[in-house]
């Protein structure tokens, strides 16, 4: 179950020994007692009533009662490569990583090469700050068992799921590849000076200006039918390079996304139609929240923190990630 609670209510839950995944403003999270919880900073949420900016309440994901074995731990830039191996065999990992931390960059660039990548379900999010505080305040995560506030490491909750159930991570992405140019890159990275457009090497910053890209629309790669976005952070005019919110990868073909109509209508149309009652955790991207003006607009009843990056096995942008826990039939 996911919903917003007052600080007092969350304190009670922690004191009762509940194991919680939390999201909230830094000042509210700092008031919580030691206990079995992890958290990330963010003051934006999707609720049943719609998108909301709230610095007083805390978004709570409570574990289903059938989950008995839970491990909380932190991951550094060095140890993050163990994340998949550490998830129990019939389990689920939920990770929260501070935006722009070394572990964020390392996971985004190298995650798909980690041992056991994709063989065990991993979801989670990149913590952030109020958009007006970007560059002034660092995003943080909280490790409740030690009452630690952390800027440079990730926190994770590793869950063991009963044998008669399984967890499945999925995404809702309203963006599709447009009909425009084929774009590839010679190297992996969060920025690119050069790109290969329809086989011709170009300066990518100059190209997207000349082509008149709406940079609110991401680059989209087709991963065997799964549309995976890389969002534009901005163009560095001085260095003539383009910065992204997730890495572009060598060998992947990207296209600029086709324009979308009304986000809420598109999103509702892409929502899963089966097993929605079993959705245990979800999160949606701050860029969807901002560009599609989701404040006050409901997105079909799926709720969760609004994030600076979503994780469904790997780092994603402008996507809703969710996990359901279903019965084995």
């Amino acid at each position: 179950m996911q919903t917003l609670f007052t600080i007092e209510d969350v304190k009670k839950k922690i004191e009762q020994g509940e194991k919680l995944i939390l999201a909230g403003d830094e000042k509210t999270l700092k008031q919580l007692p030691q206990g079995h919880w992890i958290a990330g900073t963010i003051p934006y949420f999707m609720t049943k009533e719609g998108g909301i900016h709230d610095t007083d309440r805390i978004y709570v994901t409570q574990l289903p009662s059938y989950i008995k074995k839970v491990t909380l731990r932190t991951y550094s830039e060095k140890s993050i490569s163990d994340i998949y191996k550490d998830i129990p065999e019939n389990g689920l990992g939920i990770i929260i990583i501070p935006a722009s931390s070394p572990v964020h960059l390392s996971f985004a660039l190298n995650g798909s090469g980690y041992d056991e990548f994709a063989t065990r379900p991993l979801t989670g999010w990149i913590s952030g700050v109020h958009v007006e505080d970007i560059g002034k305040i660092n995003a943080k995560v909280f490790y409740g068992e030690k009452n630690k506030v952390i800027e440079d490491e990730a926190v994770a909750m590793l869950l063991e799921i009963p044998g008669d159930k399984y967890a499945e991570v999925n995404i809702v992405n309203i963006f599709k590849q447009g009909n425009g140019d084929s774009i590839t890159f010679d190297s992996d990275g969060f920025d690119a000076s050069e790109a290969i457009v329809n086989g011709e090497k170009v300066n990518f910053a100059e190209y997207i200006k000349k082509a008149g890209f709406d940079t609110r629309l991401p680059l989209v790669a087709n991963y065997k039918g799964a549309m995976i976005n890389t969002s534009f952070q901005g163009i560095d005019e001085e260095r003539k390079k383009v910065n992204f919110y997730a890495p572009v990868f060598k060998g992947i073909e990207y296209k600029h996304a086709a324009p979308v109509g009304d986000y809420v209508t598109e999103f509702t149309g892409h929502m899963p139609h089966t097993n929605t009652d079993n959705i245990f955790f979800s999160c949606n991207c701050i860029l969807n929240y901002l560009y599609s003006e989701l404040e006050g607009k409901s997105t079909g009843g799926i709720t969760g923190p609004v994030t600076f990056g979503e994780i469904a096995y790997q780092l994603l942008n402008q996507t809703m990630a969710y996990v359901s826990i279903n019965d084995v039939k």
Partner: peptide
Amino acid sequence: FLALKILLTR
């Protein structure tokens, strides 16, 4: 299966 799509692409 999303996990397969991502892994197989890599």
